[in-house]
Simulated assay, not measured.
Amino acid sequence: MKRSKVVGREVRRRDPDRARASILAAATAEFAALGLGGARVDAIADQAGINKRMLYHYFGTKDDLYRAVLEEAYAAIRAAEGEIVLGRGSPAEAMRELVLFTWRYYREHPEFLSLLATENVNKGAALGGSARIRALNSPLIAKIGSLLDQGVAEGKFRRGVDPFKLYVSIASLCFFYLANRWTLGVSFGRDLSEPAEIEAWGEHVVGVILGYLRP
């Protein structure tokens, strides 16, 4: 076991891309679980199978690493969204697909929600210093805007919908349920983690969004 760990370290020294990926994966888990303040660079380096010197070589400070983790998290969801062809089918079908994609992604990537919660506690300070973040997110809003225009032109969507506000509405309906399902479940006596409840909420969000968009 000890020998394999040493071999793993040697491989990462000779493969910068693999080393960076290992660091980012370990750091994502650490920051998602413990937040910026609680995360330890020693633990991240150990989990990645490298030494701290190499970690600092690739990412600079702990804050720099945290920012890189956030950027990578946004890049991952935007890349996955990019596989959705929003212009395919009717505008309503495309919007339904976007809503359900967002719902599924949030469910399958709780680390993303944890990172967002941490960064909001920090008032977006790390993202404010990112040169990538707007470039990562702006294309999605532009695509939603085009989809809305198509829906208006076909008489399916009402005019005057702000694509940014629409996306925030979708994200909010998905995020709030998952972030608060335990307290909501206890307060109202419902198991919101049941598969049937999870499936029903996704359809509920679709209904809310499409109902809002009707002319």
Score class of each variant (00 low, 15 high):
residue 173 L to S: 00
residue 16 P to W: 10
residue 183 T to D: 10
residue 162 D to P: 00
residue 22 S to R: 06
residue 190 R to L: 14
residue 181 R to W: 07
residue 182 W to I: 12
residue 41 V to M: 12
residue 214 R to L: 13
residue 186 V to H: 13
residue 184 L to D: 10
residue 150 Q to E: 13
residue 58 Y to N: 09
residue 20 R to C: 08
residue 204 H to S: 12
residue 107 R to S: 05
residue 92 A to Y: 03
residue 101 F to K: 00
residue 177 Y to Q: 14
residue 57 H to K: 05
residue 98 L to C: 10
residue 199 E to S: 08
residue 46 D to Q: 07
residue 124 G to T: 09
residue 76 A to V: 07
residue 114 S to W: 09
residue 172 S to W: 14
residue 65 L to C: 03
residue 85 V to E: 15
residue 1 M to T: 11
residue 156 K to Q: 14
residue 14 R to M: 13
residue 158 R to Y: 04
residue 73 A to S: 13
residue 29 A to M: 00
residue 209 I to V: 14
residue 13 R to E: 15
residue 186 V to Q: 14
residue 206 V to G: 04
residue 56 Y to L: 11
residue 139 P to W: 09
residue 15 D to S: 15
residue 127 L to V: 12
residue 177 Y to T: 06
residue 44 I to F: 05
residue 49 G to Q: 02
residue 40 R to P: 04
residue 29 A to H: 02
residue 167 Y to S: 03
residue 197 E to A: 15
residue 171 A to H: 11
residue 115 L to C: 03
residue 138 S to R: 13
residue 197 E to V: 14
residue 196 A to Q: 15
residue 33 A to S: 13
residue 30 E to D: 06
residue 177 Y to K: 08
residue 13 R to P: 04
residue 77 I to M: 06
residue 166 L to D: 02
residue 155 G to K: 05
residue 18 R to K: 11
residue 18 R to M: 14
residue 32 A to G: 00
residue 48 A to F: 00
residue 140 L to A: 09
residue 79 A to H: 13
residue 9 R to P: 00
residue 103 W to R: 02
residue 32 A to F: 01
residue 88 R to I: 02
residue 166 L to E: 01
residue 110 P to I: 11
residue 44 I to M: 08
residue 77 I to K: 03
residue 146 S to K: 10
residue 50 I to F: 04
residue 159 R to W: 00
residue 96 R to C: 01
residue 174 C to V: 11
residue 54 M to H: 12
residue 214 R to A: 15
residue 58 Y to A: 07
residue 169 S to N: 10
residue 5 K to S: 14
residue 102 T to V: 14
residue 59 F to V: 07
residue 129 G to W: 05
residue 85 V to T: 12
residue 131 A to S: 14
residue 202 G to M: 09
residue 52 K to I: 15
residue 174 C to W: 03
residue 138 S to G: 08
residue 171 A to Y: 14
residue 148 L to Q: 01
residue 115 L to P: 02
residue 6 V to Y: 03
residue 174 C to G: 05
residue 84 I to W: 00
residue 153 A to S: 14
residue 92 A to N: 02
residue 130 S to L: 06
residue 167 Y to D: 05
residue 194 E to I: 00
residue 138 S to C: 01
residue 178 L to D: 04
residue 103 W to T: 03
residue 211 G to W: 02
residue 53 R to K: 08
residue 186 V to R: 15
residue 101 F to E: 01
residue 11 V to M: 13
residue 110 P to K: 01
residue 9 R to S: 12
residue 137 N to L: 15
residue 42 D to L: 10
residue 176 F to R: 09
residue 134 R to T: 13
residue 33 A to K: 09
residue 92 A to W: 00
residue 63 D to C: 03
residue 122 N to K: 07
residue 24 L to E: 03
residue 153 A to C: 09
residue 18 R to P: 04
residue 122 N to H: 12
residue 40 R to A: 11
residue 58 Y to R: 10
residue 172 S to F: 15
residue 25 A to T: 09
residue 73 A to C: 05
residue 86 L to I: 08
residue 75 A to M: 06
residue 99 V to H: 00
residue 37 G to P: 02
residue 23 I to P: 04
residue 188 F to K: 08
residue 99 V to W: 00
residue 66 Y to K: 04
residue 189 G to L: 07
residue 174 C to K: 01
residue 142 A to F: 07
residue 160 G to C: 06
residue 190 R to P: 03
residue 167 Y to E: 04
residue 193 S to I: 04
residue 120 N to M: 15
residue 167 Y to W: 10
residue 110 P to C: 09
residue 148 L to P: 08
residue 73 A to V: 06
residue 44 I to S: 01
